[in-house]
Write a protein that binds this DNA or RNA. Sequence first.
DNA 1: ATAGGGTTAG
Length: 574
Amino acid sequence: MNTIKPSSPYIRPIPSMVLNALHCTQSKPNPSFSPKYPSILATNIIKSYFDKGVIKEARKLFDEMPDRDVVTWTAMITGYTSCNYESFAWNIFYEMLKEGVKPNAFTVSSVLKCCKGMKCYSCGALVHGLSVKHGLVGSIYVDNSLMDVYGYTHRGDGYGGLRAFQQMLSEGAEQSAFSFSIAVKACALTGASSHGGQLHATSVKYGLNSSLPVMNSIIDMYCWFQCLSEASQCFNEMPQKDIISWNTLISGYKRSNSTMCLSLFTSMESQGFTPNCFTFTSVVAACADLSILTCGQQIHANILRKGLDRNMAIGNSLIDMYAKCGSISDSRKIFELLSFKDLVSWTSMMIAYGVHGYGVESVKLFDEMVKSGIRPDRVVFMTVLSACSHAGLVNEGLMYFDSMKTEYNIIPDQDIYGCVVDLLGRAGKVEAAYELIQNMPVNPNDSVWGALLGSCKAHKLPNLGKLAAQFMLEAKPDMARTYLLLSNLYASEGEWKDFAKMRKLMKGLGGRKEPGCSWIELKNDVYSFAVGDKVGPQTERVYEVLSMMILHMEVAGYVPDIDYSLHEFEDGIS
DNA sequence: ATAGGGTTAG
């Protein structure tokens, strides 16, 4: 649990004797305490600070301690890890080694848990090596945590996990709720829904369907398989539900039906369950998905009343929600308020700036983040590259691309290449972008070709554009947009035969294209409208205002881009 | 002060 509660009401007052003991080492020596004693007390207090989620206080105490032994360092590593601050835990471990403190079995198993949380298996291997060097392998704790780091399911290898489970079954090993819930999780990871039903049936056979963790993981599995009715059925048939059962179903619905997610939240509260940080992150994300600001604000108020506003996961989802609801200043407020920011906090704020056109601010935030000691990952590099691209910071972007590979050992994937192609192409260096594609070590996918296609269109390079569009169609044949662009390219070149071919292919996709729409929130209701919609008695007035706005835009020099709207004309929507 | 199941955010 990483609940960060407001400090004062949750912390038991520290007895003055303890406080004296803490300070006596320097100012007034107290004969009743041996020099070691205060450090043990302080270590215990550090642990309890982490238990309450007041991380800053823990760190402050740690920084003030004059003598820190291996136990103190380990308490910091365990504490940070238990609050999901793995990168801080890792930094502490690094500092500890630098100061020459020798890790013991406790330290190593804590650090391994931290590696697992970071999903950083090279870090795990590093610690493995260190454990061998310090003769710590063979301790049951160290061995189990090593297995945990290297284990199948936690690494995302669902099939590996299931194979181990199958072996367990065939060897007749005793089954428990523990093994089952992990097996179900492994099955969810494979995405093979047929095994899911079997596993569910087997759990009934072993009488484990009364275990809350087992049933909760089964609900989660059905949600990942998009079998929402099966998930709901399991949920409804459970004689007893806990908060995790609700959270599992709510987060499942958030992924496929945000409206339903919100109504589940309402029934959860009406049945007397108190939402926690997990619930709120899903529900806030649902508001972000639906772009419903007032609802998001009401839930935010609920969060404030429960004193959960300093929780990092909730804060991160609030940043995203306010940005997606158009209220970037609120995103920034939440971001500033977070006493602890992790990689996701920074990335969310950077994306918020990016989508609102503040590329420079986004890039600045990236530098600040790195300076604060957080190690960037693939996602945040995508964010900073796209920010550079939109702000026209080509050289800076290329520099980040380079440091990603050389400084952070992140191997660029297709999406990253897509960002760099976009960076170059947007700035008019379309040839350089094409050259990059030809030299990239992985096969270019639709995001790469799409970026090139976009820049060919913007900089009017029909020939390269046609090439990009053809590759794009190979990679992703169901994009009506690509056919449209390609057909327009053919039309501009007078290649009517190819034009007709594209139009025909495009029509075949007709039913699959989702119509675009806009919406506005007015007095607790959301009104959505598509091109050409009639919006009640006020329709005429709305269109009057619209034509006036278009006139203003044209006076200001706006030239409409009709490449994408042609399709709508043909469908007769417009 | 140490490991072991299910739910969260970019």
